[in-house]
Design a binder for these strands. Structure first.
Lengths: 178, 178
DNA sequence: GCAATCCCTACTGGATTAATAGACTTTCGG
DNA sequence: CCGAAAGTCTATTAATCCAGTAGGGATTGC
């Protein structure tokens, strides 16, 4: 029941992009993402390319370039991302909605294993197909603020935010200290 | 989120053993199990050995030997079997109960991915740690009888059951036709 | 004793995973 | 217009895991 590193890294990167966007700094470079999440940069690059091809992120090329979300975070469901990178959510193909494939059992309708695994696949999908990137970002930010933890990817600090908190959300000033 | 073939085959075999036991014929040979489920016999043998070592099945050796459940089907939870063969249920190690391992993210308490994956792991475990082999067997048998489908592993038929249905459950007579 | 069964150990081919490498293209600032 | 800094593209790879295959050994029933 494993999530691959590809999916994990993709989701981490997307969450970071979502956070950054929310904080008014939508464009992030691979190097920043890799540094924040401690990921191999070239591997992450490949993954981001995959996300770009699939339409989840877009890029600005050249110097000062980077990656940014290509669609509203509310419209990015985690399940779709995982399916893109890892294949079906279902534990066995005969209970997959997106990639059904018959298994070897003689009678699907009376296969006990299938019944249970169908429940499992539905339980997984109920979460991953409902939760949007926006929700994850929102909860993450709320928790970080509540606990007064430094928020990453806030606007570049020039030392002013700490003195003149012109941003609506006062806690983002914390992030400037990074 | 894949179940390995090992786990799949193990569960199929256990369900079959449970059904057979329920029908008064607890001992099954690898060859029977392999035939019923269309599995490579030698591979299944390995898996059954693993189940034996872990105490889920026991064997009778020698001619007319075979495998049988070593404990009550009510006490065999699917989650345990899968953990034995595939490792933790959790999609990522940092949300595993049975094999927790820290991940690379800097702050677990504020990791959005972790929050979601914790929900997923709980959803999976809620099913697989609650459902017992006995329940799967019961539902399977009920469905097969309701739909008047041949029930496998009934007592050896000598052609008498169809004429003299001495078994409590009349539908098991159907199985004799196999 | 012999045939059928489980037991044990080793191996293996293929696929997948998680990267790594490097040359190429685009863009910005000066 | 040049060069540095970014993303793009393609290839390679080392390691691991998966799913099986193989074959001889031990045990038991008839």
């Amino acid at each position: 029941m494993n999530l691959s590193k590809r999916s994990e890294y993709a989701l981490r990167a997307l969450i970071d992009l979502g956070i950054a966007k929310e904080l008014g700094r939508p464009l992030l470079q691979v190097s920043e993402l890799a540094a924040k999440e401690q990921l191999p940069i070239k591997f992450l690059e490949q993954i981001l390319t995959q996300l770009r091809v699939a339409g989840y992120v877009d890029t600005k090329r050249g110097k000062l370039g980077g990656y940014f979300l290509a669609k509203a975070a509310t419209r990015i469901k985690l399940g779709k991302i995982i399916r893109l990178l890892d294949g079906p959510l279902a534990p066995i193909p005969c209970v997959s909605q997106s990639a059904y494939h018959r298994c070897t059992c003689p009678d699907e309708a009376h296969c006990g294993l299938r019944m249970v695994m169908l429940d499992v696949r539905n339980a997984i999908a109920r979460i991953l197909d409902r939760v949007s990137l926006a929700q994850v970002v929102e909860i993450t930010l709320r928790k970080m603020r509540r606990d007064k933890v430094a928020v990453p990817f806030a606007r570049q600090s020039f030392g002013l935010e700490e003195i003149v908190p012109f941003l609506k959300d006062t806690t983002t000033g914390e992030a400037a200290k990074r």
